[in-house]
Design a protein around this nucleic acid. Structure first.
Lengths: 330, 330
DNA sequence: CACCCCTCAGGGAGCGCTCCCTCACCCTTC
DNA sequence: GAAGGGTGAGGGAGCGCTCCCTGAGGGGTG
């Protein structure tokens, strides 16, 4: 079952290859009757251009690599970030007619594979989701000269990114807890090699400092399990705490479980606020108050940034605002 | 910044293009010293083969399309299925050196795009996740003669698939509830155009029938919200029910919320069992009993099936077993 | 020693497409 | 009516690679 080529279509239509090519590529300098006869032949033969041949000569690929760089322990099998981001990005890119090549970079080996692939010129640009601060990949990709846009801020300062107002979001959360009359407000941080985590922590610290209160900090890594563990730690260290700000919802969910197991009532004994406002936040018991940051919007913004870069636009970061969604947990 | 070609490498190494090609492709009929000098040149020049040129002549693409066909309402932004499946599949395919082209089919337009793309011979095979029973895509793809493997059973009978023992899983859940002394056991179904849903419902019905009990059924669509809604319905229709089997965990989570809001204690008043054992199931309040079905294993099996098909293997379905994970909710 | 076979390197056609260049033709203008 | 310009079709080179074919050379055999 051999697919027809340009030449076959041309023969069928009784015109030259060049004309068929022009019609296929929507050039305007084609007489209507030629256009029609070519389209007719295309339809009859079910002709589809061979992309390999095309981009061999044009050097364009119309493809974008979406690279999710996440250490192996990030085996959060149902991490909502992955789902939301990949899905949104895919939708957005397909809408502008670009192919999405998904690549996971979970190890040195797969990172090398990504570099090789990108260096191979198989894509017009790279959208990067690098969830680990010490990740060498952003810098490596930036060095290749290909357009790269990152979903989050990375250590590679020359990679344009989209970011949230993390400190502002944390402040929103903490002020809300203070307004509710909470006095001993702890936090569970994300992995501190990530800007997101550091900024959220800094926002928390600064807000408490401004009101003359001390910080109570436990380290997490953005997973449910780490949230549960950190909450246990906090209860042990400071049994009198009356509120927790978790740097993401997944950890807040883990914290809720620990609090439940420890017999603390939420929000009566301990108020909980998360960050991200994922879908699941509305379905916890009690429903979770959270800083809304629309990962989908952030993902869309990143795609727009990348497309702009590919067109030769300026390499400047984008900052997204966020707000607070108050539910039962606080 | 032009990338070096085979010819350049050949010139540098002082050998023919053919020899370089042989080395690059790991053919064994090459003298070691030639191999070495070629590898040296490749390294020095940073040569990466041009995939377009290569697959123009070989007709292989080393790429696989992963098509997620999901109606627009499936905008479950953090659906764990998507995340788990896409991630696992990607990992598995990259391990065997294949590129993953991710495509969403959410509308007629995008479905047409997928068909056109696949027809264009850009991929060696298609892994399909078609979450809608009436989806015309599986049949359309099957018609193209390209290897297609589906993550779930579809209406297109000629598409090889991987499936769970859905009826068996449902029976496991219902028997467990009966063993716990529950007598009025309701179910929340998935969308009934899906085999999964129908089989789980049938397993539930058959088990109750065997023990002389009647079915209490509410319809859901696999989303949290539909689970919450269905649970409301059930409480209204049959206030005395003492157990619910939800056809997936997301709906079980929704049901938990409704039960909480309605003041029913779980499991004291109403026991709840879900299906899938997603990560979140362990973090609900109370933690959710669920039929474990490892979507990851199912995804892996589908990839294996697809790779086998590409190699010319037999087109036969694979059935996966499942078991029950008992937690606090039952 | 002659012959044959086998191994392995090089030459070159050709994959399907784009795009530059040429050229035919028609319309305009003097 | 001849010349010039503009429009649009066709010819063909060439993108970078693979793979078939040719042929050189070495070793084994009778």
């Amino acid at each position: 079952m051999k697919r027809p080529t340009l030449a076959v279509v041309a023969a069928r239509a009784g015109v030259s290859k060049s004309s068929v090519s022009r019609v296929i590529n929507g050039e305007t300098t084609v007489a209507p009757e030629i256009r029609d006869v070519v389209m007719q032949a295309v339809r009859e033969l079910g002709y589809v251009p061979n992309a390999a041949a095309r981009n061999l000569v044009t050097r364009r690929t119309d493809a974008v690599a979406v690279v999710v760089s996440d250490p192996p322990k990030g085996v959060v099998s149902d991490d909502p970030l992955f789902s939301t981001v990949v899905r949104t990005v895919s939708r957005e890119l397909e809408a502008v007619g670009r192919r999405v090549v998904l690549m996971l970079a979970e190890s040195d080996e797969s990172r090398a594979r990504v570099e090789r692939y990108v260096a191979g010129g198989h894509v017009d640009g790279v959208m990067l989701v690098a969830l680990h601060g010490a990740d060498p990949l952003p810098a490596a990709l930036a060095r290749m000269g290909l357009p790269v846009a990152s979903f989050n801020r990375t250590a590679a300062t020359d990679v344009p990114y989209v970011a949230l107002d993390n400190a502002g979001g944390a402040e929103l959360a903490v002020r809300h807890l203070l307004d509710r009359g909470r006095r001993r407000i702890a936090t569970i941080t994300g992995p501190l090699d990530l800007y997101e985590s550091r900024e959220r922590l800094e926002g928390y610290r600064a807000t408490l400092r401004d009101t003359g209160r001390r910080s109570i900090v436990a380290l997490g890594d953005f997973t449910r399990m780490s949230g549960a563990e950190a909450m246990r730690q906090l209860l042990e260290d400071d049994p009198d705490l009356d509120a927790v700000f978790a740097a993401n919802d997944l950890m807040a969910i883990g914290a809720l479980r620990t609090l439940h197991q420890a017999g603390r009532r939420v929000p009566d004994d301990v108020a909980v606020v998360g960050f991200d406002d994922i879908e699941a936040a509305a379905y916890t018991t009690p429903a979770l108050t959270s800083v809304r940051s629309s990962m989908a919007d952030q993902a869309t913004a990143t795609v727009r940034l990348l497309l702009a870069l590919i067109k030769g636009g300026p390499r400047k970061p984008v900052i997204m605002p966020n707000d607070l969604v108050v539910r039962e947990s606080s």
